[in-house]
Amino acid sequence: MAATLAGVPARPRRLLASRRTRIGILYALPAVAYLLALFVYPIFSTLLLSVQDLDGSLTLHWYADALTGVNLSVLFTTLRIAAETALFSLVIGFLLANAISRLRPLPAALAMLIVVVPHFISALVRTYGWIIMLGDKGLVNQLLAGLGVPGAPYQLLYNEIGVVIGTTAMMLPYTVLLLYGVMRGVDRRLLAAAASMGAGRLVIFRRVYLPLVAPGLATAGLLSFILALGYYITPALMGGPNQTMIASLINQQVMKQNQWNGAAAEGVILLLLTFAGLLLVKLVSSLGEAKKRSAS
């Protein structure tokens, strides 16, 4: 091939010319078209809307609006609740997935079903269910009061505790499924190998199991964080005004006020936050990797 002689500058062209690359592009075409039509174009138009004033002129005041006053505090609330949700759904999801991954297939499927069921219950029924569970006169508080726990009944609904309980429950199917998959993928014999060398359970968990499922943990945490950023029904059900989420504001603006520009700006901010979350995880994981490299 003549291009080979040309050396470094010809590389991109050589790459394109190779049969494999061409076929690769062909394969990628539908996906690219799909992404363009369903994501890139709409997102671009949303971007455009968010910087357009009512009369069509360019403006940033929708962003200024979104980043001041109540809107800003709602933004922080959203971030905080998303982070809390990610944390709790990660921890609980880990414990659940771990337990389920040790079950036999049938009980495992059953347990999975129980985890997923809340998703198929209508918001209305769920609302009532949570009141029965967590209300002042609810099961949990009655139990605690019955046990003589000081301070009972606790306020478990219509505050941040309630919201995090609710969003975590909604998120669990995702984290459990994801972590379950990762855990099933872990070669249990590696744990046996560690045991054969004399490692106790705790050491095996910390030094072998945890590092092996760590990528799954990062993904699950990120997923729940991103998903929670967009939640608003559950926070509305389980929380108070202090737990208003940004998606709720977007909904209000579009549905109630027919105010699309402001909603677009907030949507863009939400999107940027999502990217920031992605970036953060990437950064943290590559930092960890670098640290490891330099250590060994």
């Binding site: 369903l38 994501f39 174009y41 709409p42 997102i43 671009f44 138009s45 949303t46 455009l48 809307l49 357009q52 009512l54 009369d55 069509g56 998703h119 209508s122 918001a123 909604m170 998120m171 995702y174 991103i226 998903l227 950023l229 967009g230 939640y231 608003y232 029904i233 559950t234 998606a247 977007i250 579009v254 699309w260 909603a263 677009a264 949507g267 863009v268 939400l270 999107l271 999502t274």
Partner: peptide, 29 residues
Amino acid sequence: MTTSPIGRRALLRGAAALAALPALAACGT
């Protein structure tokens, strides 16, 4: 309003796409 209907339609889809990312799970009503 001055926004063209096309822009409006695109926005509807844009909002849908945006919602699809973070609000996937915001199901219910």
